[in-house]
Design a protein around this nucleic acid. Structure first.
Length: 879
RNA sequence: GGGCGGGUAGCUCAGUUGGGAGAGCACCGGCCUUACAAGCCGGGGGUCACAGGUUCAAGCCCUGUUCCGCCUACCA
């Protein structure tokens, strides 16, 4: 067996690359379509092909990888399904920008050529984020990588579109939609980001027709007045009770428009009179429908005023606003202008101000789909963790509006609809029809719009598994096990996968949804390029190592709370990685290969650490099973550093360096078991360093990925050992505490006198006397029950025992008086609180017996300790 | 406007059936003890935002106040 000793410190760089290649070359990430093992499946939230890895991805994928690696070690047939989405608008923007830099645009190159260029771009740059995920250590089954625009997924998209259309769940119609004048496309409601802005509320007079006076309306968008086709007031508004049937004259345009009555109008706001522009405002559109108002579109797709805008034709919408205000003011129709704050919609891709426009678009009728998706969570078929997100989910699902799915761009799934140029008949089909079914004309043209990217993402959990084919993968892995994602795409993606999954598969797409938090900077601010507070995960991985970075993310990922990341924190966990490295180094330096190894002669320390390892295995597994990643990480950290390293390995030195072969053999075996067990616990969090060390221990026999995750029955359970170690630690801590307080350097040994409460406890100490000598730097120990306190000694009380540290010539009496006095004070406070409870009849009557018993016991113990401390103190007061 | 989350040690945070206030970092003191100075040993430090209420018992449950963050919304 080749067991080389490790280098003095852990250097991640090359090791990470080496093992990732090893895992892939050995197909360790591959799932089986068929397997007797229980399936576990996660579909990756597909990153945009245009994307590069940011902190959100890093957290999201680290958590997924932790679960996948953990489940694999637990024996599951794990599939982590990877892929990317085509990000229609974003990708098109990137390629258009590149065209612009060459002095051309997509219209000049034409649709077909443009699509080719995007594919070329995707070939060249689309793999960046995939490689970055690999850098992070993600154990995705890359042999199954998918792309939302690839053949299989495109087939699924067509299938779904056609079926929904045939079921009447997709329709085409004229509606007011959110238009981005820069991206030149419609956007779904949730693709609009609202931002509070400082605007103005303009009060504009509309003179009455055929009578004196005017009606004053309040608006934030005076330029839309050109398209007004009514003014509405509330029928219950007494101010306007007498204007039934009246008309007003639209300023500038001098067009008479009716005054209508509409409950929607808020009498409290502005003047209680609302101008109605059905072609440029979603609410006005609705009102226009109920009152049969004309729709006059005055702003075009470029955000410019069109021919119906009269004198303003050709002006930009913002320029027009200024001009129109001036004209109205000149006409004496501008009553006043108030500063006003309102939320204005912006394109989520390019931040351009959205223009609500009247337009012909394709919609998904969501209500019936949403009902089932909502019920599935209500009935607990799909669980959302943390559960607080359920409310948000229900709120959205229960108030959902139809989903505008057509986009006026070229990069995406072209809508499978054909129009007959002869008679206008619409055909929706998977393949292009040869002739019109109504008039037999062959003059058919395909819809130019493409589908919203999220339309294809909504099918991800089943389209990636081969749907609409009936594949083994679908049978094995659908419904998938867990979806891990950020809350920012709860509506965009999770909700829509629920709708589509239930509708087309007849079952939920995943059993659990785990929503994790956002990664913020150390001040809790959202990371953004413009703020300049972005921490690049790749830089972090270079500097601190991937394992340290992953462990940090896991350790900070408490449920329901944002992750505030700072480099100091990552550095701290890099130290932890190094700690494991060095603990392993120590083990490898002291293990020997021997055929005649004699095992089973476990020391107290051996039995203790093995028992603890068993307990910790359960705790970590339970934490991971319930998505408490930070707890799982914390338990590992605490156990490995403060129990395994600080206590066990120090104690193991006695056996390793000693002459007793039986003890030595057993200790070697236990050290190995404890370290390898710890490596297995840590592997899901820090895959690289654990794999590296694992191979040093096993001589490269097999990957740690194939090892079984630790469970209590792998070790031993010795309750007695836990108790005995407690006592031993009590003695050592007592002496260390006194040494520390007295500033006695480690080079200076001390003598102690142990006053043990009973013979049994004295035996435990006797059996482990070398540990006390070594770990507390003691040269001589005397054990005597009830021995009087020696002169010039400092005393620590633990349990019913005490330890006197002999400090002839070293003891500062004042210091010792202070030290004991302080301790007594602390204890008295506790005793007081507990006694108050015990003297409370309510507590004695109503509290459970075990709680009362615990408090009584506490008072007894503390009183005893206080007594001893006081006794010790009196000793010094005599001096 | 509605909803959600949060205010716990100097900093960042944990605290899952209500019953001992914790961690990491920072700080102070002692150590180059041959796995690790990326380390070891010891220590100080908190009216758990504020005010009420429920309870024998509240960081935890309820109500209100206040501050911060986020999501959402068709009051122009």
């Amino acid at each position: 067996m080749d067991r080389e000793i490790l280098a003095k410190g852990y250097e991640p760089g090359d090791i990470e690359r080496k093992w990732y290649k090893y895992w892939v070359d050995n197909n360790l990430f591959q799932a089986k379509g068929h397997s007797d093992a229980e399936p576990f499946c996660i579909v990756i939230p597909p990153p945009n092909v245009t994307g590069t890895l940011h902190m959100g991805h890093a957290l999201n994928n680290t958590l997924q990888d932790i679960l996948c690696r953990y489940k694999k070690m637990k024996g599951f047939n794990v599939l982590w399904q990877p892929g990317t989405d085509h990000a229609g608008i974003a990708t098109q923007n990137v390629v258009e920008k590149s065209l612009a830099s060459q002095g051309t645009d997509r219209h000049a190159v034409g649709r077909e050529k443009f699509e080719e260029l995007v594919w070329e771009w995707r070939e060249k740059y689309g793999g960046i984020i995939i490689n970055q995920l690999k850098r992070l250590g993600c154990s995705c089954d890359w042999s199954r990588e998918r792309f939302t625009m690839d053949k299989g997924l495109s087939r699924a998209v067509k299938e779904v579109f056609v079926r929904l259309y045939e079921e009447g769940l997709i329709y085409r119609g004229d509606y007011i939609i959110n238009w981005c004048p820069r991206c030149h496309t419609a956007l779904a409601d949730i693709e609009v980001e609202h931002e509070d802005m400082n605007s103005f509320l303009y009060y504009i007079r509309y003179p009455f027709v055929g009578r004196n006076g005017h009606l004053t309306v309040a608006t934030t968008r005076p330029e839309t007045l050109l398209g007004d086709t009514a003014v509405a007031v509330n029928p219950r508004d007494e101010r306007y009770g007498d204007i039934s049937g009246a008309s007003v004259l639209l300023p500038i345009m001098n067009r008479p428009i009716p005054v209508i009555f509409e409950d929607y109008v808020d009498t409290e706001f502005g003047t209680g009179a609302l101008k109605i522009t059905p072609a440029h405002d979603p609410n006005d559109f609705e009102i226009g429908n109920t009152h049969n108002l004309q729709r006059i579109k005055v702003i075009d797709e470029n955000g410019r005023m069109n021919s119906l805008a009269g004198p303003y034709q050709g002006m930009d919408r913002f320029e027009c606003r200024e001009k129109i205000l001036k004209d109205i003011e000149d006409a004496g129709l501008l009553e006043k202008v108030d500063p006003y704050q309102n939320a204005i919609g912006h394109c989520y891709r390019c931040k351009t101000m959205i223009e609500p426009l009247l337009s012909k678009q394709w919609f998904v009728r969501t209500a019936p789909l949403a009902k089932a998706a909502s019920d599935a969570v209500r009935e607990g078929k799909t669980r959302i963790t943390p559960a607080s997100w359920e409310g948000t989910y229900f709120d959205w699902m229960d108030n959902i509006r139809d989903w505008c799915v057509s986009r006026q761009i070229w990069w995406g799934h072209r809508i499978p609809a054909w129009y007959c140029n002869a008679c206008g008949e619409v055909h929706v089909a998977k393949e292009a029809p040869q002739r019109c079914r109504a008039c037999s004309s062959e003059d058919l043209v395909q819809e130019t719009d493409v589908l919203d990217t999220w339309f294809s993402s909504a099918l991800w959990p089943f389209s990636t598994l081969g749907w609409p084919g009936a594949t083994d993968e679908l049978k094995t892995f659908y419904p998938t096990s867990v979806l891990i994602t950020g809350f920012d795409i709860l509506f965009f993606w999770v909700a829509r996968m629920m709708m589509m999954g239930i509708h087309f598969m007849g079952d939920i797409p995943f059993k659990d949804v785990y929503i994790h938090a956002l990664v913020r900077d150390a001040e809790g601010k959202k990371m953004s390029k413009s703020k300049g507070n972005v921490i690049d995960p790749l830089v972090v991985m270079d500097e601190f190592g991937t394992d340290a970075f992953r462990f940090t993310l896991a350790a900070l990922a408490a449920q329901g709370r944002d992750v505030k990341l700072s480099e100091e924190r990552i550095e701290g966990y890099r130290h932890f990685v190094n700690k494991i490295w060095n603990a392993s180094r120590f083990a490898l330096m002291n293990l020997q290969d021997k055929a005649d190894i004699e095992t089973g002669n476990h020391t107290l320390a051996d039995r203790w650490i093995l028992t603890r390892l068993g307990q910790v295995s359960t705790e970590v597994a339970q934490a991971l099973d319930s998505f408490r990643f930070n707890e799982a990480a914390g338990i590992c950290y605490q156990f490995i550093w403060h129990e395994l390293c600080d206590w066990y390995l120090e104690m193991a030195k006695q056996g390793l360096y000693g002459d007793d072969k039986a003890i030595k053999d057993s200790t070697m075996e236990t050290v190995k078991t404890a370290i390898m067990g710890s490596l297995k616990l840590l592997h899901p969090f820090m895959p690289f360093v654990t794999e590296e060390i694992w191979h040093k221990f096993t001589g490269g026999a097999s990957s740690i990925m194939l090892a079984e995750f630790p469970k209590p029955s792998d070790f031993m359970y010795d309750k007695d050992a836990l108790k005995k170690m407690d006592l031993l630690m009590g003695v050592i801590n007592g002496v260390r505490n006194i040494r520390g307080e007295m500033n006695i350097p480690p080079s200076k040994s001390v003598s102690i006198l142990l006053d043990m409460a009973d013979g049994e406890q004295a035996d435990i100490i006797n059996d482990n006397i070398t540990h006390i000598k070594t770990l507390a730097k003691v040269d001589s120990i005397r054990i005597e029950s009830g021995a009087p306190k020696p002169e010039a000694s400092a005393t620590a009380v633990f349990g019913r025992n005490q330890v006197h540290v002999l400090l002839k010539g070293l003891l500062d009496f004042d210091e010792e008086r202070k030290r004991i006095g302080k301790e007594i004070q602390k204890i008295e406070k506790e005793i007081e609180a507990s006694e108050k409870k015990l003297s409370n009849h309510g507590f004695m009557d109503k509290a459970p017996a075990d709680v009362v018993e615990k408090v009584k016991q506490k008072v007894d113990e503390l009183s005893l300790k206080r007594e001893k401390l006081k006794h010790n103190l009196s000793f010094f007061e005599k001096i």
